[in-house]
Design a protein around this nucleic acid. Structure first.
Lengths: 241, 241
DNA sequence: CAAATAGTGTCTTTCAGACAATATTGT
DNA sequence: ACAATATTGTCTGAAAGACACTATTTG
């Protein structure tokens, strides 16, 4: 092949921003770096793309290896590619970043060789210094999740296979950092075609009337979107005590 | 550096979907391939990323080299990365695709070593067989442009530095393939904060009242979006003779 | 029963879209 | 004057958000 000798090869990695909800806060999966640059620091999980491996498949593999869990993420998509020439001091690397969303796991992280992995609150991680350009990547992932809540059923990826409308509302409230009106939210979600569908049974919280149980519907796009415009900080009336 | 010998390097290219409006139709910049695979066929412009070159900068360089024009595109963004292991029979390559939008150029394409470049109607190109995964890339670019018209001022990138509201409307109508009400469109655009601002002068078409001239405003996001939901094929009433 | 949560009803305001009306120009 | 286009006005229906109200459950 002609160009093999003419052009500089590049090391392509796949990094994954894995988001979930724990303790009413957005968390991200981080691993402790074991090797040279930034050794011992928390970084996004990721690794080199293997020959004959698709990018999405590589992201899935990294996720599986790093979490030790055979979870198939409820959501996995390509986020963007980061390739500043100086992003890795060792060599020219290009990182294809992905976004994964999981429901809260009973055991945080533990498994094969994933002892170094842990869930960290996004807010704290974004305040700290991160290796390479992982700060940009994480910020892009969070922003993507925020905006996709609006016009896709992404929220269902944060909860289990069945959930209540209040569960969904907590996802929106946590990721958007904004309190939503329970009544209007309920109407909006149930009325959005294909967003959710009834599942058998009810679910009781600690107190209050038990809630109907739903599962994710077939829709891939919310039409119309749940809320347009920006999450405004409470327009006119009261709301929030 | 340790991993140099341990992991397979990859050839990273930057491909560019360059869109513009010509003769009331969406056109894309295509180049005739001169080398081995798919030789002589039309393909998206692109090339290898150079060492020490940022991805966006590489896209800008390719655009400049291929068009021969020193245009700074009104819009240039990363579109997505395509890396199916079998996408190039010669070697493992990963293409970082970009989307560029230009106003219609007086001279289609001509310049340094860009004799092979030409503008092609998007509809026709999407009907033909394209090299590598360029069909997917082009489709992604067109789709990105379509959706970004809705919530960003991308339409201004299709027209010159100054334009009339009707010019903008033609962009929407062409890219969306849908007729829009001139009155409602005018109100919407002028009322969208930061989308457009008045420029001095007026402009006369062949007949009819001359139109006010505008330039792009400072907004980067349209809030609220111009139209939510999907471009529906004329809902209720009449419209279109 | 009181507190808490689920779910429904209602009202007001805003806005999108259809379409009429007015303003200006070239032929 | 007529045709064509720009721009503004008007009206109607749908939807968003605020908030009252009803339905059920636990303590």
């Amino acid at each position: 092949m002609a160009f093999t000798s003419e052009f500089p090869p590049v090391y392509v990695t796949v990094d994954v921003v894995v988001l979930t909800l724990r303790d009413d806060a957005l968390h991200v999966l981080m691993v402790e770096r074991g090797s040279k640059p930034w050794q011992g620091r928390l970084a996004l999980p990721g690794g080199f793309v293997q020959q004959q491996e698709d990018l999405l498949a590589a992201a899935r593999r990294e996720l599986r290896e790093e979490t030790g869990l055979a979870v198939q993420p409820a959501h996995l998509e390509q986020l963007g590619t980061f390739g500043r020439p100086d992003r890795d001091p060792r060599a020219r690397t290009v990182a294809v970043a992905h976004l994964a969303v999981l429901p809260a796991l009973p055991e945080p992280v533990a498994g094969t060789d994933a002892a170094a992995a842990s869930w960290q609150p996004v807010a704290e991680v974004l305040d700290a210094e991160l290796p390479f350009d992982h700060h940009d990547i994480l910020a892009a992932g969070v922003e993507r999740a925020r905006s996709k809540l609006e016009y896709t059923p992404l929220a269902t990826a944060f909860v289990g296979p069945t959930f209540t409308i209040a569960d969904l509302r907590h996802v929106y409230e946590t990721v958007w950092g904004r309190r939503l009106d329970p009544g209007n939210f309920h109407r909006k979600v149930v009325g959005s075609p294909g967003f959710v569908e009834r599942a058998p049974g009810e679910r009781s919280g600690s107190r209050g009337r038990p809630a109907a149980v739903y599962r994710a519907g077939p829709a891939t796009l919310l039409n119309p979107p749940l809320w347009r415009g920006e999450p405004a900080p409470t327009p006119t009336g009261r709301h929030r005590p």
